[in-house]
Design a protein around this nucleic acid. Structure first.
Lengths: 210, 210
DNA sequence: ATAAAAAAGTCGCACTTGCAACTTTATGTG
DNA sequence: CACATAAAGTTGCAAGTGCGACTTTTTTAT
């Protein structure tokens, strides 16, 4: 939602990129982003396009850790990715700006206003990411699939301020997000439908309770 | 682990507190911290003592979201706490510095070196917190209690660099951390012991595999 | 337009888990 | 030291879930 470049003019962004020694890279759909550079020491910003951070488990299962779109920020810290089991895959053609983490926090000159604005924007983005992660944890903390679903619904509904919402990803991905078996999740969705709690039309889910 | 005041002299900290309009508060064991101020718009720093962020669910269950000790940072964003169902409880006598979030990112003057150092320190702390949260998510993503335990063991072992580690909290709290039923967790620990995977002596757990 | 691939949806069965109701062992606290 | 309180540990049973093997529908690519 927030852009790291909020409040910066094009010229300021150019200067910022010079100050921080930013390089940009382009990738095609399904490419792995920066497979050679270790994610740990960089911060990446999606300039356009979208991607997913996935985590591959020892058993071969892969889990979506994060959805990245235009202006999303990723990297160490700023998001995830501390081992070789994490991969960032472009979901469409994409351009990425890469900032060396050390240069970000120890620039040659930290007194430029555009640098300070950028840093504060990053803070806001981090806040948002924490919220997102906490939301996920709150959902994963639920012991039953039904409660995970209800927690997820509540979380999505909070964003739309109405009694329905559009699923932000596929049901398959939802099962991964909730960390439950896909068919067991469908069974529970079916139960919720039959018990009159929800209505499902494609990706539109309507909540019929309270 | 990292301190937000790393690299700052006592005088600089005093100036920083003035710049940011910091107030400090003291609490006694089992007090709720800042029950009146909404957590959303502040950042808190534990100056001494320890505390826990707990989350109370609709069914009355409470879950430890985070352990706070000296130099820990909490608040919106910087950690958790966006609804009334979150509480921060002092585990011992404690002093807390409270910074208004708006003042932090929009100080009257952002050109002081101590301000920039502080901001960068916060970044490092945030990185660490992200790591911690990702670690938790990686554990919660496991579908079976056994796998949650093994993921937790791996995560703890990584810190000690040997084949054993000391549990950082009680088994009861571990069950909450893994978001599983306590007695079901004990059953699985028993299985792991009987199958020769682990050895448990009080809070010391030794891993007997690979 | 059509084939191929992916996602959605269903179901039975075995296994895992939550839950309740305990007993036993630690940990305070006056 | 003794009493109270919390944590550790155990067990049976009912309920919930993972998994595999499907069918049907939707999406994507040629």
């Amino acid at each position: 939602m927030n852009s790291p470049f909020e409040g910066l003019s094009k010229q300021q962004i150019v200067k910022l990129f010079q100050l921080l020694g930013v390089h940009t890279y382009t990738y095609h759909k399904n490419d792995e982003i920066i497979p050679t550079i270790k994610y740990e020491n960089i911060i990446g910003i999606i300039l356009y396009g979208s991607a997913q951070i996935i985590h591959i488990e020892y058993n071969g299962n892969d889990i979506i850790l994060e959805q990245l779109k235009e202006n999303s920020v990723f990297g160490t810290s700023i998001s995830a990715t501390n081992t070789e089991t994490y991969h960032i895959i472009a979901k469409e053609d994409i351009e990425v700006a890469v900032i060396d983490y050390d240069k970000l926090i120890h620039p040659s000159n930290s007194r430029h206003s555009y640098y300070n604005i950028f840093l504060r924007n990053l803070f806001d983005i981090i806040n948002e990411k924490f919220m997102t992660k906490n939301e996920r944890i709150k959902i994963l903390e639920q012991k039953q699939i039904r409660n995970k679903l209800l927690a997820f619904f509540a979380s999505e509904q909070k964003k739309t301020h109405s009694n329905y919402f559009i699923m932000p990803f596929s049901f398959k991905d939802l099962a991964d997000y909730l960390a439950v078996n896909r068919s067991a999740m469908f069974r529970e969705i079916k139960n919720l439908k039959e018990e009159g709690f929800i209505q499902v039309k494609g990706k539109k889910i309507t909540l019929l309770y309270k």
